[in-house]
Nucleic acid binder design. Structure first.
Length: 465
RNA sequence: UCCUCAUUAGCUCAGUUGGUUAGAGCACCUGACUGUUAAUCAGGGGGUCCUAGGUUCAAGUCCUAGAUGAGGAGCCA
Protein backbone atom coordinates (compact mmCIF):
# COMPACT_ATOMS: atom_id res chain seq x y z
CA UNK A 1 0.00 0.00 0.00
CA UNK A 2 1.30 3.39 -0.97
CA UNK A 3 -0.33 6.70 -0.29
CA UNK A 4 -1.71 6.83 -3.79
CA UNK A 5 -3.46 3.47 -3.40
CA UNK A 6 -7.15 4.03 -3.87
CA UNK A 7 -9.88 3.46 -6.39
CA UNK A 8 -11.23 6.53 -8.11
CA UNK A 9 -14.90 7.14 -7.42
CA UNK A 10 -15.76 7.06 -11.10
CA UNK A 11 -14.36 3.50 -11.26
CA UNK A 12 -16.12 2.44 -8.06
CA UNK A 13 -19.45 3.59 -9.43
CA UNK A 14 -18.92 2.21 -12.90
CA UNK A 15 -17.42 -1.22 -12.33
CA UNK A 16 -16.62 -1.67 -8.65
CA UNK A 17 -17.08 -5.30 -7.55
CA UNK A 18 -19.77 -5.60 -4.91
CA UNK A 19 -18.37 -7.30 -1.81
CA UNK A 20 -14.77 -6.24 -2.42
CA UNK A 21 -12.68 -4.21 -0.01
CA UNK A 22 -11.96 -0.75 -1.41
CA UNK A 23 -10.25 2.48 -0.48
CA UNK A 24 -11.64 5.83 -1.56
CA UNK A 25 -10.20 9.28 -0.98
CA UNK A 26 -11.82 12.61 -1.56
CA UNK A 27 -13.58 15.66 -0.25
CA UNK A 28 -16.83 15.58 1.70
CA UNK A 29 -19.82 17.18 0.01
CA UNK A 30 -22.35 16.53 2.79
CA UNK A 31 -22.75 14.49 5.91
CA UNK A 32 -26.16 13.64 7.30
CA UNK A 33 -27.68 10.97 9.47
CA UNK A 34 -29.03 10.16 12.88
CA UNK A 35 -27.65 8.85 16.15
CA UNK A 36 -26.99 5.42 14.68
CA UNK A 37 -25.55 5.98 11.25
CA UNK A 38 -23.89 8.74 9.24
CA UNK A 39 -24.02 9.14 5.46
CA UNK A 40 -21.11 10.90 3.83
CA UNK A 41 -21.28 12.02 0.20
CA UNK A 42 -17.68 11.83 -1.06
CA UNK A 43 -16.28 13.30 -4.28
CA UNK A 44 -12.76 13.10 -5.69
CA UNK A 45 -13.26 15.08 -8.90
CA UNK A 46 -13.10 12.02 -11.11
CA UNK A 47 -16.83 12.27 -11.82
CA UNK A 48 -19.79 14.52 -11.18
CA UNK A 49 -21.24 11.75 -8.99
CA UNK A 50 -20.48 11.21 -5.32
CA UNK A 51 -20.05 7.89 -3.61
CA UNK A 52 -22.02 7.38 -0.43
CA UNK A 53 -20.00 6.31 2.60
CA UNK A 54 -21.99 4.73 5.42
CA UNK A 55 -20.43 4.97 8.87
CA UNK A 56 -21.92 3.43 11.99
CA UNK A 57 -21.87 5.83 14.89
CA UNK A 58 -21.24 2.90 17.24
CA UNK A 59 -18.00 2.10 15.39
CA UNK A 60 -16.57 5.58 14.84
CA UNK A 61 -18.11 7.62 17.62
CA UNK A 62 -20.11 10.79 17.44
CA UNK A 63 -17.17 13.10 18.20
CA UNK A 64 -15.08 11.68 15.37
CA UNK A 65 -17.87 11.79 12.79
CA UNK A 66 -18.65 15.39 13.69
CA UNK A 67 -15.21 16.39 12.43
CA UNK A 68 -16.16 15.10 8.97
CA UNK A 69 -17.92 18.17 7.64
CA UNK A 70 -18.50 19.64 4.21
CA UNK A 71 -15.12 20.32 2.64
CA UNK A 72 -13.08 17.93 4.78
CA UNK A 73 -10.72 15.50 3.05
CA UNK A 74 -10.82 11.86 4.12
CA UNK A 75 -9.64 8.38 3.32
CA UNK A 76 -12.19 5.59 3.67
CA UNK A 77 -11.46 1.87 3.79
CA UNK A 78 -14.48 -0.35 3.59
CA UNK A 79 -16.56 -2.82 1.70
CA UNK A 80 -18.36 -1.90 -1.49
CA UNK A 81 -21.97 -3.01 -1.04
CA UNK A 82 -25.22 -2.65 -2.89
CA UNK A 83 -27.07 0.35 -1.59
CA UNK A 84 -30.58 -0.01 -0.20
CA UNK A 85 -31.14 3.63 -1.17
CA UNK A 86 -32.70 4.29 -4.52
CA UNK A 87 -30.34 7.04 -5.64
CA UNK A 88 -27.11 5.10 -5.89
CA UNK A 89 -26.31 1.55 -6.97
CA UNK A 90 -23.44 1.01 -4.53
CA UNK A 91 -22.03 2.53 -1.37
CA UNK A 92 -19.06 1.98 0.92
CA UNK A 93 -19.68 0.43 4.32
CA UNK A 94 -16.81 2.09 6.17
CA UNK A 95 -14.38 0.07 8.27
CA UNK A 96 -11.71 2.71 8.77
CA UNK A 97 -11.70 6.44 8.14
CA UNK A 98 -8.70 8.76 8.22
CA UNK A 99 -9.22 12.51 8.20
CA UNK A 100 -6.53 14.16 6.08
CA UNK A 101 -7.84 17.65 6.59
CA UNK A 102 -10.77 19.15 8.42
CA UNK A 103 -12.73 22.14 7.15
CA UNK A 104 -14.08 24.29 9.97
CA UNK A 105 -17.76 24.63 8.99
CA UNK A 106 -17.93 28.04 10.63
CA UNK A 107 -15.33 29.33 8.19
CA UNK A 108 -15.46 27.10 5.10
CA UNK A 109 -17.21 29.18 2.44
CA UNK A 110 -18.71 26.36 0.37
CA UNK A 111 -21.95 24.85 1.53
CA UNK A 112 -24.03 22.06 0.22
CA UNK A 113 -26.57 24.60 -0.95
CA UNK A 114 -26.13 26.38 -4.24
CA UNK A 115 -23.99 29.46 -4.59
CA UNK A 116 -24.10 32.21 -7.18
CA UNK A 117 -21.47 32.10 -9.89
CA UNK A 118 -20.50 35.64 -8.88
CA UNK A 119 -19.76 34.50 -5.34
CA UNK A 120 -17.80 31.49 -6.57
CA UNK A 121 -15.63 33.78 -8.71
CA UNK A 122 -14.50 35.45 -5.49
CA UNK A 123 -13.34 32.07 -4.20
CA UNK A 124 -11.83 30.72 -7.39
CA UNK A 125 -9.29 28.81 -5.30
CA UNK A 126 -12.08 26.63 -3.91
CA UNK A 127 -14.66 26.60 -6.68
CA UNK A 128 -13.19 23.52 -8.45
CA UNK A 129 -14.71 21.61 -5.52
CA UNK A 130 -18.23 22.45 -6.66
CA UNK A 131 -20.25 20.25 -8.98
CA UNK A 132 -20.51 22.93 -11.63
CA UNK A 133 -16.81 23.74 -11.81
CA UNK A 134 -15.83 20.11 -11.56
CA UNK A 135 -17.98 19.47 -14.62
CA UNK A 136 -16.71 22.53 -16.50
CA UNK A 137 -13.07 21.75 -15.79
CA UNK A 138 -13.41 18.10 -16.81
CA UNK A 139 -15.06 19.22 -20.05
CA UNK A 140 -12.30 21.79 -20.55
CA UNK A 141 -9.74 19.03 -20.25
CA UNK A 142 -11.65 16.76 -22.60
CA UNK A 143 -11.86 19.49 -25.22
CA UNK A 144 -8.14 20.24 -24.95
CA UNK A 145 -7.39 16.58 -25.44
CA UNK A 146 -9.83 16.30 -28.35
CA UNK A 147 -8.23 19.27 -30.07
CA UNK A 148 -4.83 17.61 -30.02
CA UNK A 149 -6.34 14.30 -31.07
CA UNK A 150 -8.20 15.85 -33.99
CA UNK A 151 -5.10 17.47 -35.45
CA UNK A 152 -2.74 14.66 -34.56
CA UNK A 153 -5.01 12.16 -36.34
CA UNK A 154 -4.91 14.40 -39.41
CA UNK A 155 -1.12 14.58 -39.37
CA UNK A 156 -0.86 18.21 -38.28
CA UNK A 157 2.25 19.31 -36.38
CA UNK A 158 1.73 21.06 -33.04
CA UNK A 159 3.82 24.19 -33.39
CA UNK A 160 4.89 26.11 -30.28
CA UNK A 161 4.80 29.79 -31.13
CA UNK A 162 6.39 32.31 -28.78
CA UNK A 163 4.48 34.02 -26.00
CA UNK A 164 6.90 36.94 -25.94
CA UNK A 165 7.13 38.88 -29.16
CA UNK A 166 8.87 41.99 -30.38
CA UNK A 167 6.39 42.38 -33.20
CA UNK A 168 3.40 44.57 -32.43
CA UNK A 169 2.12 44.51 -35.97
CA UNK A 170 -0.59 41.89 -35.70
CA UNK A 171 -3.01 44.64 -34.99
CA UNK A 172 -5.25 42.32 -33.03
CA UNK A 173 -5.43 44.53 -29.99
CA UNK A 174 -3.58 46.32 -27.22
CA UNK A 175 -0.64 44.41 -25.78
CA UNK A 176 0.96 43.85 -22.40
CA UNK A 177 4.53 45.09 -22.21
CA UNK A 178 7.29 42.71 -21.14
CA UNK A 179 10.24 44.50 -19.59
CA UNK A 180 12.96 44.18 -16.98
CA UNK A 181 13.58 47.92 -16.82
CA UNK A 182 13.21 49.72 -13.52
CA UNK A 183 9.85 51.36 -14.00
CA UNK A 184 10.59 53.96 -11.33
CA UNK A 185 13.77 55.04 -13.04
CA UNK A 186 13.96 53.80 -16.63
CA UNK A 187 16.90 54.68 -18.89
CA UNK A 188 16.10 57.61 -21.16
CA UNK A 189 17.21 58.44 -24.65
CA UNK A 190 18.22 61.99 -25.55
CA UNK A 191 14.67 62.84 -26.60
CA UNK A 192 13.44 61.90 -23.12
CA UNK A 193 11.66 58.73 -24.19
CA UNK A 194 12.34 55.42 -22.46
CA UNK A 195 15.35 53.77 -24.06
CA UNK A 196 14.38 50.20 -24.80
CA UNK A 197 17.78 49.50 -26.30
CA UNK A 198 18.77 48.84 -22.69
CA UNK A 199 15.83 46.51 -22.03
CA UNK A 200 16.22 42.74 -21.76
CA UNK A 201 15.73 42.03 -25.45
CA UNK A 202 17.37 45.23 -26.66
CA UNK A 203 14.03 46.35 -27.99
CA UNK A 204 10.40 46.65 -26.96
CA UNK A 205 8.71 43.36 -26.22
CA UNK A 206 5.15 42.31 -25.51
CA UNK A 207 2.99 39.29 -24.77
CA UNK A 208 1.61 37.80 -27.94
CA UNK A 209 -1.92 38.51 -29.13
CA UNK A 210 -1.82 35.68 -31.67
CA UNK A 211 0.48 32.96 -32.87
CA UNK A 212 -0.78 33.22 -36.41
CA UNK A 213 2.15 34.93 -38.10
CA UNK A 214 4.60 32.40 -36.69
CA UNK A 215 2.06 29.71 -37.50
CA UNK A 216 2.31 30.72 -41.14
CA UNK A 217 6.07 30.26 -40.99
CA UNK A 218 5.48 26.71 -39.81
CA UNK A 219 2.82 25.97 -42.41
CA UNK A 220 5.14 27.07 -45.21
CA UNK A 221 7.52 24.28 -44.22
CA UNK A 222 5.52 21.57 -42.49
CA UNK A 223 2.35 22.02 -44.59
CA UNK A 224 -0.13 21.51 -41.77
CA UNK A 225 0.41 22.96 -38.32
CA UNK A 226 -1.61 24.20 -35.41
CA UNK A 227 -0.91 26.19 -32.31
CA UNK A 228 -2.70 25.84 -29.00
CA UNK A 229 -1.62 28.20 -26.30
CA UNK A 230 -2.35 31.29 -24.25
CA UNK A 231 -2.74 34.70 -25.80
CA UNK A 232 -3.02 38.09 -24.17
CA UNK A 233 -5.04 41.21 -24.87
CA UNK A 234 -4.68 44.35 -22.81
CA UNK A 235 -8.02 45.71 -24.01
CA UNK A 236 -10.24 47.20 -21.35
CA UNK A 237 -13.05 44.85 -22.26
CA UNK A 238 -15.58 44.20 -19.54
CA UNK A 239 -17.93 41.66 -21.03
CA UNK A 240 -18.94 38.04 -20.41
CA UNK A 241 -17.07 37.06 -23.59
CA UNK A 242 -13.60 38.59 -23.09
CA UNK A 243 -10.53 37.71 -21.06
CA UNK A 244 -7.16 39.41 -20.85
CA UNK A 245 -5.53 35.96 -20.91
CA UNK A 246 -7.20 33.29 -22.99
CA UNK A 247 -6.29 30.22 -24.99
CA UNK A 248 -6.49 30.01 -28.73
CA UNK A 249 -6.21 27.25 -31.30
CA UNK A 250 -4.81 28.38 -34.63
CA UNK A 251 -4.42 25.86 -37.46
CA UNK A 252 -2.45 27.09 -40.45
CA UNK A 253 -2.38 24.98 -43.58
CA UNK A 254 -0.51 25.19 -46.86
CA UNK A 255 -2.41 24.41 -50.09
CA UNK A 256 -5.79 25.18 -48.49
CA UNK A 257 -8.03 27.80 -50.04
CA UNK A 258 -10.86 29.51 -48.20
CA UNK A 259 -13.30 26.68 -48.94
CA UNK A 260 -10.90 24.04 -47.63
CA UNK A 261 -10.47 26.30 -44.63
CA UNK A 262 -14.21 26.44 -44.01
CA UNK A 263 -14.50 22.68 -44.40
CA UNK A 264 -11.81 22.20 -41.79
CA UNK A 265 -13.38 24.68 -39.36
CA UNK A 266 -16.80 23.05 -39.64
CA UNK A 267 -15.44 19.52 -39.31
CA UNK A 268 -13.32 20.62 -36.35
CA UNK A 269 -16.18 22.20 -34.40
CA UNK A 270 -18.48 19.26 -35.02
CA UNK A 271 -15.76 16.83 -33.97
CA UNK A 272 -15.31 18.65 -30.68
CA UNK A 273 -19.03 18.83 -29.98
CA UNK A 274 -19.47 15.14 -30.75
CA UNK A 275 -16.48 14.32 -28.58
CA UNK A 276 -18.09 16.15 -25.66
CA UNK A 277 -21.44 14.45 -26.21
CA UNK A 278 -19.73 11.08 -26.28
CA UNK A 279 -17.18 11.47 -23.49
CA UNK A 280 -18.68 14.03 -21.13
CA UNK A 281 -22.28 12.83 -21.00
CA UNK A 282 -22.59 12.88 -17.19
CA UNK A 283 -21.17 16.37 -16.87
CA UNK A 284 -23.28 17.69 -19.75
CA UNK A 285 -26.40 16.21 -18.21
CA UNK A 286 -25.61 17.95 -14.95
CA UNK A 287 -25.03 21.30 -16.68
CA UNK A 288 -28.16 20.76 -18.75
CA UNK A 289 -30.18 20.21 -15.61
CA UNK A 290 -28.67 23.00 -13.52
CA UNK A 291 -27.97 25.84 -15.93
CA UNK A 292 -29.20 25.37 -19.49
CA UNK A 293 -32.16 23.14 -20.23
CA UNK A 294 -31.53 23.21 -23.97
CA UNK A 295 -27.80 22.58 -23.85
CA UNK A 296 -27.64 18.96 -25.03
CA UNK A 297 -30.36 19.50 -27.61
CA UNK A 298 -28.45 22.48 -29.02
CA UNK A 299 -25.17 20.57 -29.14
CA UNK A 300 -26.79 17.68 -30.98
CA UNK A 301 -28.45 20.03 -33.43
CA UNK A 302 -25.27 21.90 -34.28
CA UNK A 303 -23.32 18.64 -34.59
CA UNK A 304 -25.58 17.43 -37.38
CA UNK A 305 -26.50 20.69 -39.11
CA UNK A 306 -24.72 21.92 -42.21
CA UNK A 307 -23.42 25.41 -41.47
CA UNK A 308 -24.86 28.11 -43.70
CA UNK A 309 -22.20 29.72 -45.88
CA UNK A 310 -22.72 33.05 -47.55
CA UNK A 311 -20.79 36.13 -48.49
CA UNK A 312 -20.74 39.32 -46.49
CA UNK A 313 -22.42 41.02 -49.45
CA UNK A 314 -25.34 38.56 -49.39
CA UNK A 315 -25.64 38.98 -45.63
CA UNK A 316 -25.88 42.74 -46.03
CA UNK A 317 -28.65 42.25 -48.62
CA UNK A 318 -30.59 40.10 -46.17
CA UNK A 319 -30.13 42.56 -43.32
CA UNK A 320 -31.11 45.53 -45.48
CA UNK A 321 -34.43 43.88 -46.27
CA UNK A 322 -35.22 43.27 -42.61
CA UNK A 323 -37.85 45.55 -41.22
CA UNK A 324 -36.02 46.08 -37.96
CA UNK A 325 -34.70 49.05 -36.11
CA UNK A 326 -30.95 48.55 -35.98
CA UNK A 327 -29.01 50.46 -33.41
CA UNK A 328 -26.25 50.56 -36.00
CA UNK A 329 -27.33 51.15 -39.61
CA UNK A 330 -26.68 48.46 -42.21
CA UNK A 331 -24.91 49.27 -45.46
CA UNK A 332 -22.25 47.66 -47.58
CA UNK A 333 -18.87 48.34 -46.01
CA UNK A 334 -19.97 48.49 -42.39
CA UNK A 335 -18.44 46.08 -39.92
CA UNK A 336 -21.24 43.86 -38.70
CA UNK A 337 -22.33 44.45 -35.13
CA UNK A 338 -23.45 41.77 -32.74
CA UNK A 339 -27.11 42.65 -33.29
CA UNK A 340 -26.64 41.88 -37.00
CA UNK A 341 -24.73 38.66 -36.41
CA UNK A 342 -27.27 37.51 -33.87
CA UNK A 343 -30.11 38.18 -36.29
CA UNK A 344 -28.49 36.11 -39.03
CA UNK A 345 -27.68 33.17 -36.76
CA UNK A 346 -30.61 33.10 -34.35
CA UNK A 347 -33.47 34.54 -36.38
CA UNK A 348 -32.83 34.17 -40.09
CA UNK A 349 -30.92 30.91 -40.54
CA UNK A 350 -31.36 29.43 -37.04
CA UNK A 351 -28.03 27.61 -37.33
CA UNK A 352 -24.30 28.36 -37.42
CA UNK A 353 -23.33 30.73 -40.20
CA UNK A 354 -20.03 31.25 -42.00
CA UNK A 355 -19.66 34.68 -43.53
CA UNK A 356 -17.01 35.17 -46.22
CA UNK A 357 -15.46 37.82 -48.43
CA UNK A 358 -15.59 40.83 -46.18
CA UNK A 359 -14.71 44.35 -47.34
CA UNK A 360 -10.95 44.77 -47.23
CA UNK A 361 -11.30 48.01 -45.27
CA UNK A 362 -12.46 46.20 -42.13
CA UNK A 363 -10.12 43.20 -42.21
CA UNK A 364 -6.49 42.50 -41.41
CA UNK A 365 -3.56 43.09 -43.78
CA UNK A 366 -2.63 39.44 -44.29
CA UNK A 367 -5.93 38.35 -45.85
CA UNK A 368 -5.94 37.38 -49.52
CA UNK A 369 -7.33 40.06 -51.77
CA UNK A 370 -10.10 39.12 -54.15
CA UNK A 371 -10.00 40.15 -57.81
CA UNK A 372 -12.85 42.64 -57.30
CA UNK A 373 -10.43 44.91 -55.47
CA UNK A 374 -12.97 45.44 -52.70
CA UNK A 375 -13.10 42.27 -50.65
CA UNK A 376 -10.77 39.79 -48.99
CA UNK A 377 -11.04 36.04 -48.46
CA UNK A 378 -11.99 36.24 -44.81
CA UNK A 379 -14.31 33.82 -43.08
CA UNK A 380 -15.99 34.23 -39.71
CA UNK A 381 -17.93 31.40 -38.09
CA UNK A 382 -20.88 32.74 -36.12
CA UNK A 383 -22.51 30.58 -33.45
CA UNK A 384 -25.80 30.92 -31.63
CA UNK A 385 -25.43 32.56 -28.20
CA UNK A 386 -21.69 33.13 -28.65
CA UNK A 387 -21.36 35.21 -31.80
CA UNK A 388 -18.01 35.00 -33.55
CA UNK A 389 -16.34 31.79 -32.44
CA UNK A 390 -13.84 31.48 -35.29
CA UNK A 391 -12.14 34.10 -37.42
CA UNK A 392 -9.95 33.09 -40.33
CA UNK A 393 -8.96 33.65 -43.91
CA UNK A 394 -7.00 32.54 -46.89
CA UNK A 395 -3.72 34.43 -46.59
CA UNK A 396 -2.22 36.74 -49.18
CA UNK A 397 0.69 34.80 -50.67
CA UNK A 398 1.65 37.38 -53.30
CA UNK A 399 4.60 39.45 -52.06
CA UNK A 400 3.75 42.55 -54.07
CA UNK A 401 0.08 42.64 -53.12
CA UNK A 402 0.91 41.96 -49.48
CA UNK A 403 3.55 44.68 -49.32
CA UNK A 404 1.25 47.21 -50.97
CA UNK A 405 -1.51 46.46 -48.53
CA UNK A 406 0.81 46.73 -45.52
CA UNK A 407 2.11 50.08 -46.67
CA UNK A 408 -1.43 51.31 -47.19
CA UNK A 409 -2.33 50.23 -43.65
CA UNK A 410 0.84 51.72 -42.14
CA UNK A 411 2.25 48.39 -41.04
CA UNK A 412 6.06 48.58 -40.88
CA UNK A 413 7.35 46.20 -43.55
CA UNK A 414 10.93 46.44 -42.28
CA UNK A 415 10.04 45.03 -38.88
CA UNK A 416 8.11 42.24 -40.61
CA UNK A 417 10.99 41.24 -42.90
CA UNK A 418 10.89 37.65 -41.67
CA UNK A 419 7.19 37.34 -42.45
CA UNK A 420 7.61 38.77 -45.94
CA UNK A 421 10.49 36.40 -46.74
CA UNK A 422 8.02 33.52 -46.75
CA UNK A 423 6.41 35.22 -49.75
CA UNK A 424 9.78 35.93 -51.28
CA UNK A 425 11.04 32.36 -51.10
CA UNK A 426 8.77 29.54 -52.14
CA UNK A 427 5.48 31.22 -51.33
CA UNK A 428 2.40 29.04 -51.37
CA UNK A 429 -1.34 29.50 -51.12
CA UNK A 430 -2.37 28.84 -47.54
CA UNK A 431 -5.14 29.44 -45.04
CA UNK A 432 -5.85 29.32 -41.36
CA UNK A 433 -8.15 30.38 -38.57
CA UNK A 434 -8.29 31.06 -34.86
CA UNK A 435 -10.69 29.45 -32.41
CA UNK A 436 -11.07 30.99 -28.97
CA UNK A 437 -10.88 28.05 -26.60
CA UNK A 438 -13.01 29.66 -23.91
CA UNK A 439 -15.61 30.74 -26.46
CA UNK A 440 -15.85 27.12 -27.54
CA UNK A 441 -16.26 26.11 -23.91
CA UNK A 442 -19.05 28.64 -23.44
CA UNK A 443 -20.92 26.91 -26.20
CA UNK A 444 -20.15 23.35 -25.07
CA UNK A 445 -20.87 23.89 -21.37
CA UNK A 446 -23.78 26.31 -21.70
CA UNK A 447 -22.09 28.67 -19.23
CA UNK A 448 -22.85 32.30 -20.06
CA UNK A 449 -19.83 34.06 -18.57
CA UNK A 450 -16.35 33.35 -19.92
CA UNK A 451 -14.90 33.82 -16.43
CA UNK A 452 -16.61 30.56 -15.48
CA UNK A 453 -14.96 28.32 -18.10
CA UNK A 454 -11.33 29.08 -17.19
CA UNK A 455 -9.91 28.09 -13.81
CA UNK A 456 -8.39 31.46 -12.96
CA UNK A 457 -9.80 34.30 -15.08
CA UNK A 458 -7.73 37.38 -15.85
CA UNK A 459 -9.81 40.48 -16.59
CA UNK A 460 -9.33 44.22 -16.10
CA UNK A 461 -8.79 44.91 -12.40
CA UNK A 462 -8.85 41.23 -11.57
CA UNK A 463 -5.68 39.17 -11.14
CA UNK A 464 -6.31 37.31 -7.88
CA UNK A 465 -5.18 33.72 -7.35
C1' U B 1 -14.32 53.02 -21.98
C1' C B 2 -19.89 54.25 -22.35
C1' C B 3 -25.07 53.09 -20.74
C1' U B 4 -28.27 50.51 -17.23
C1' C B 5 -29.06 47.86 -12.83
C1' A B 6 -27.49 45.99 -8.20
C1' U B 7 -24.93 46.02 -3.12
C1' U B 8 -29.41 44.17 3.59
C1' A B 9 -26.83 37.85 8.45
C1' G B 10 -21.56 33.14 6.35
C1' C B 11 -24.79 32.13 1.51
C1' U B 12 -29.49 33.19 -1.40
C1' C B 13 -32.91 36.91 -0.87
C1' A B 14 -37.61 39.83 1.13
C1' G B 15 -38.19 44.61 3.37
C1' U B 16 -44.96 48.55 1.11
C1' U B 17 -46.20 55.90 0.18
C1' G B 18 -39.49 57.50 4.44
C1' G B 19 -42.13 55.89 10.57
C1' U B 20 -41.31 51.86 16.73
C1' U B 21 -36.86 46.68 18.29
C1' A B 22 -34.60 45.04 10.08
C1' G B 23 -37.06 39.47 8.47
C1' A B 24 -37.11 34.40 5.86
C1' G B 25 -34.75 29.94 3.89
C1' C B 26 -30.18 27.56 4.01
C1' A B 27 -25.52 27.32 6.82
C1' C B 28 -23.68 27.28 12.08
C1' C B 29 -24.61 25.73 17.56
C1' U B 30 -27.88 22.59 21.04
C1' G B 31 -31.35 18.67 21.22
C1' A B 32 -34.63 14.74 18.85
C1' C B 33 -34.87 10.79 15.21
C1' U B 34 -33.04 2.86 13.49
C1' G B 35 -30.89 4.04 6.26
C1' U B 36 -30.45 9.35 4.82
C1' U B 37 -30.66 11.51 -0.54
C1' A B 38 -29.57 19.58 -0.91
C1' A B 39 -32.61 14.25 5.19
C1' U B 40 -36.40 15.89 8.62
C1' C B 41 -38.32 18.15 13.35
C1' A B 42 -37.74 21.66 17.82
C1' G B 43 -34.87 25.55 19.93
C1' G B 44 -30.62 29.12 19.85
C1' G B 45 -26.72 32.57 18.41
C1' G B 46 -25.59 35.74 14.33
C1' G B 47 -26.49 42.65 11.13
C1' U B 48 -21.22 49.09 10.52
C1' C B 49 -28.40 47.59 5.69
C1' C B 50 -21.09 48.80 0.53
C1' U B 51 -18.41 53.74 1.92
C1' A B 52 -18.54 59.13 2.66
C1' G B 53 -21.45 63.28 2.63
C1' G B 54 -26.47 65.50 2.37
C1' U B 55 -32.15 66.27 2.82
C1' U B 56 -35.64 65.27 6.96
C1' C B 57 -38.72 65.49 13.37
C1' A B 58 -37.34 60.58 11.34
C1' A B 59 -33.31 57.20 6.08
C1' G B 60 -32.21 50.11 4.71
C1' U B 61 -35.80 53.29 1.82
C1' C B 62 -34.78 59.97 -0.94
C1' C B 63 -30.32 63.05 -3.14
C1' U B 64 -24.80 63.54 -4.46
C1' A B 65 -20.03 61.35 -4.96
C1' G B 66 -17.08 57.04 -4.71
C1' A B 67 -16.05 51.56 -4.40
C1' U B 68 -17.35 46.74 -5.97
C1' G B 69 -20.24 43.39 -8.93
C1' A B 70 -23.54 42.17 -13.01
C1' G B 71 -26.09 42.96 -17.81
C1' G B 72 -25.90 45.57 -22.56
C1' A B 73 -22.59 48.25 -26.11
C1' G B 74 -17.77 49.06 -28.31
C1' C B 75 -13.13 46.11 -29.37
C1' C B 76 -12.46 41.18 -30.56
C1' A B 77 -11.42 35.23 -30.04
Amino acid sequence: MTLKSRTKITALLKDGAVGSDVTAKGWVRTRRGNKNVAFIALNDGSTIHNIQVVADVAVFGDDFLKRITTGACIRVDGKLVESPGAQQPVEIQAKDIEIYGEADPAQYPLQKKGHSLEFLREIAHLRPRTNTFGAVLRIRHAMAYAIHKFYNDKGFVYLHTPLITASDAEGAGAMFRVTTLDMDNPPRAEDGKVNYDEDFFGKEAHLTVSGQLEGELGALALSEVYTFGPTFRAENSNTPRHLAEFWMIEPEIAFYDINDNMDLAEEFLKYLINYALEHCADDLEFLNKMWDKELIERLKLVAKTKFERLTYTKAIEILEKVDAKWEFPVYWGVDLHSEHERYLVEKHFKKPVILTDYPNEIKAFYMKQNDDGKTVRAMDVLFPKIGEIIGGSQREENLEKLTQRMEKMNIPTDEMWWYLETRRFGTAPHSGFGLGFERLLLFVTGMTNIRDVIPFPRTPNSCEF
